[in-house]
Structures are given as C-alpha cells and as structure tokens.
Amino acid sequence: MKKKDYFKLFRIMFTLSAFTFGGGYVIVSLMKNEFVDRLKWIDEEEMLNLVAIAQSSPGAVAVNGSILVGYKVGGIPGAIVSIFGTILPPFIILSAISVGYNQFKENVYVGAFLKGMQPAIAAIIISVVIQLGLNIIKQKEVYFIIIMVLAFLVTYFMNVNIILVILSCAVLGGFYALYKQKKGVK
C-alpha cells in the first residue's frame, strides 16, 4: 500500500467514526459501503468474515472491525492507522463535551439533529443488509438461508445472547463442511 493510501485509510476511518451514531452495526455498514462497493479493496465475502471475527471478539465492534479492515488492506501499519482514525473522533468530541456537558445534553439543536438523523441510520443499515441478504440467497444453498432466517428470529424476537448465536452458527457451518467433505470423499 502506498503512503497516500494510508492517509486515505486514516481519513476514511476518521470520517466513519465521527459519524457513527447508533452503534457498531452502523460503522460496519458504512465500512462495507466504502471498502467493498466504492474502493473495492476488500471483497464482500471477506468483509463478512471480518465482521464475524469483530463480532466474536470482546470490545467495541467498531474498533475490532477497523483493526481487521486496516490490517487486511495495509498490514500492521494499516491496523495502527485505522485504530487511531477510529478512536480519535470520540476522544476529541468527548473531551470537548466533558467541559460543558449539561449545555450539550439539553441543547435543542443537538436533539433535533439527532432525531432527524435516526431514520437515516436505519436506512443505511437496511440498505446494506438488503444487498448482503440477497447475495446469501443468490448462492442457492438452502442450508445457509435457513441459518440466516433462524439467526434473525432468535436474535430479534427471542433476544438470545449474540455470543450464543455466533457459536451455534459456527458449529452448524463446521458440521456442514464436515458432512460435505465426507460425501465428497465417497
């Protein structure tokens, strides 16, 4: 990776982090949009693998995801650049706000801005998830489509712990690979 690409990586991570209201899934959606669709630095399948790893590790998904994406595109320097890009915006903003946080918390313009932005956050996540879901369906492997539907039902309607969902799906995927391997050998 060239020097100017590291700057680009830093700038992208910084911008994404500065605008990720609404948690880790937003930044993951934005990263997919930026690195997979626009820059084509990572392919979609790899991106989903990285998100799965980020999700299975402790700590903030946004930080984990940025380390993995940074490493993927630029090795260890890329990972370091990404970490700084990701943690600097919240660091600067929170440092600034902690001086006068009551004024900030009760500011009507801040409240209105956030309220106006909230539906757009949902729109980002949903537009990314539609593409991702369609690509899983297009592979025409019923087994994985069933995993997707079941995983959705248990996380959304039954509030099952995410770690449990991840572990179960990992095991289901592993068994399926073993089964296919055995069948292939015969």
Partner: peptide, 17 residues
C-alpha cells in the same frame, strides 16, 4: 465451513439492529 455459517448470522444480526 465455520465462516460460511457465520456470514448469514452476521447478516441476520445487522438486520435485527
């Protein structure tokens, strides 16, 4: 295989969020 099982789960969790 494990990753192939995780990818649909990730999509499901993003959708749920």
């Amino acid at each position: 295989g494990v990753l192939a099982g995780l990818r649909p789960a990730v999509v499901a969790m993003i959708l749920s969020a």
